[in-house]
Amino acid sequence: MLEYGTNLNLVRSMDLSNNKLSGEIPVEVTSLVELISLNLSHNLLTGIIPEKIGEMRSLESVDFSVNKLSDSIPESMSSLSFLSHLNLSYNNLSGEIPLGTQLESFDPSSYNGNHLYGLPLPKKHSANVAIHNGGGGNDNGFEMEWFYFGMLYGFGMGFWSVFATVVINRR
């Protein structure tokens, strides 16, 4: 068996997508600090995204989509300043997307199929997560009350305008 311990700093891209890999993402992957692209999508990976992923400062593309990863997005991911492509969709991730311009700049579809909230996701997602997690309020309730009130008011005004016109014109 060959051992590649000394040549690992030469690895720039790793695509292990669509391989039915299972288990957790090995923490040792984060020692590939020169890695530019990491694609582990469409596997059966479980567990968490390693916290040390933020130490992989050269990463430009990360795709962990369509796995069974859980817990939250590591705070350290917000320090990946060269990251230009991110796809964490369709996992079991939950919690708030870490603050920082890097993770907030991606399209909301990068986070689909999870229980995440925060920027760049629309507010309705965070309200749904709060309900799902047993949280308190629903921001949409107040808006819906005003919507129904407006409809009722509009109907009443329209009805009485037509009815009053018919009664007055009858005389």
Rank of each mutant, 00 (worst) to 15 (best):
N138W: 08
N19G: 08
N92H: 12
N87V: 04
G54S: 08
S70H: 06
V166C: 12
F82S: 13
F159I: 12
M1Q: 10
M56N: 03
N92I: 02
S78Q: 12
D63K: 00
Q102Y: 05
S58V: 02
S41N: 04
R170F: 13
N169H: 10
Y111V: 02
G156A: 13
F142I: 15
S41I: 06
L88Y: 02
N112L: 07
E104P: 01
I168F: 10
L93G: 04
S72W: 03
G5P: 00
P108S: 09
E3S: 15
E24H: 11
N140D: 12
S41F: 02
G23M: 07
S109I: 11
F82I: 01
S126R: 11
S126V: 02
I168Y: 10
L152F: 15
G95Q: 06
I131C: 11
F159V: 15
H132M: 11
I25A: 00
N91R: 03
V62C: 06
G95E: 07
E24C: 09
N7G: 09
V129F: 05
P50S: 03
N140I: 10
S31P: 05
L119Q: 10
L8M: 13
N7S: 14
F149I: 14
L44D: 14
N114D: 10
Y148K: 10
L69M: 06
H132P: 04
L45E: 04
G156S: 14
V129Y: 06
H42M: 08
E24P: 00
K52T: 11
M144R: 13
N91M: 01
R171F: 11
L10P: 01
L121P: 01
N112M: 07
H85I: 09
L152C: 11
I97Q: 02
E3P: 06
V11I: 14
S89N: 07
F82H: 13
T165Q: 10
L103V: 06
S161W: 10
Y4S: 10
F159Y: 15
L80W: 03
V129W: 06
